[in-house]
Amino acid sequence: MKPAGMKRARSGTIGRLVLIAAIVGTACLVIATEATAGDDPEALLRKARDASATANVAGVVEVRWVDGDQVFVERVGARSRGDAYVVGRGEHVAVGRDGMRYAADDGVATRWGSGDQVHAPEPGTAWKLEIDDPAHVAGRAASVVSARDAAGRVRARFYVDRSTHLLLRRDVFDRSGALARSVRFVRLSTGAAAPAVPQLPTKGSQVAATSDVPDGFTAPDHLGAFRLLGRYRHPDGTLQLFYGDGLFSLSVFEQSGLVDWDAMPNGGRRGQVEGQRAATYSTAAGTVVVWGEQGLVLTGVSDAPTDTVQAVLPGVANDNQSTVDDVVNFVFGPFGWE
C-alpha cells in the first residue's frame, strides 16, 4: 500500500501535464487559425465581413472618388454597436440595424435582405486574390489583400485590421492602375463604450423582394461573373436587380419608358451600351450608367471598376433565360423560389 502523500503527488503531476497540454494545444490551434486566415485571402475577407457585423466602432471615414479630372474627398463620422450603425450626421446620415437601412437626405428607408435565397459567389471566383505586404491604416497594422483581373492588373486592395479583422480600407483602381475610389478609416477606436445609435423610422420598408418579373422587363441570372442575388420592386414600379461577384456588387434598375436626356444631371460622360446612347456618372457609391433599350430605362450602379461594369451591362437586355426557366419561375414564383 502506497502512502497517501505519494498518491496526491502523482495525481498533481498528471493534472499539471494535462493543463500544460491543454494550454499548448489551444495555443497551437489559435496560431494555426491565425496562420490560415492570414495566408488565405478569401478567409481574411470573410473574417472582415463577419467582423463588420459585430464590432463596436467609433471613427472617421474618408471617401475619395475620381470623376474625370476631378478628385472628391469627404469625411464622415461612423459609429457601430453590434448590428447597429450610424454614418454621417444631420441630413446626410445613413443608419442601419439588422437588414433595415435608412438614409435621411433622400428618404431611402428600406428593409433589405428578406427573400434572398441566393448566396454570393466566393470572393476569389472572378478575381485572383493574393496577400500583399502588410501596411498601416489609421495607426493600425493591417493585412492587405489584392485582387487582380484576368490580365494580372491589380484592380482592388483590401486592408484588414490584424487585431479586430475590421475592414480598414478599400481601394479600387482603373485599368491604368490609378486610384478610382477609396473608402478608409482615418481615425478608429474599437471596443470602446458602445455609442448611441438612434432608432430607425418606423415607416419605410417600401421596397419589396419579388420573384415576379413584369412583362417587358428583364432579369438575367448572370451578368458576366455577377450572379443575381435578389429582385426588388420599388413603390414607383422600378425593378431593382441586385448582383454580386463575391468582391463587388451591381444593381440594375429598370423603369418602363424612354430616357429623358434633357432632364438628366450634367456631368455624365457620354458613351454607348449596345449601340444605345448612355451616360456614365461617378458617385461616392461607384459608377452609375444610364441608358435606354427595348422600351426600358436602365440604370446600372456598381462599386466595381468602371470598365468591368461597362463590360457586363450589355447583357441586361439580352436575357438568355430559356423557356424552361420561364416555366420554372412561373410555377415556383408564388412560393418565393429564386
Binding site: R101, V108, T110, Y232, F253, Y281, T283, A285, S302
Partner: peptide, 12 residues
C-alpha cells in the same frame, strides 16, 4: 441618379 446610387449602396 443620386437616389439610385444610395439605394444600391444600402442594399450592398
Amino acid at each position: 441618379v443620386a437616389t439610385l446610387s444610395d439605394e444600391h449602396a444600402a442594399r450592398s
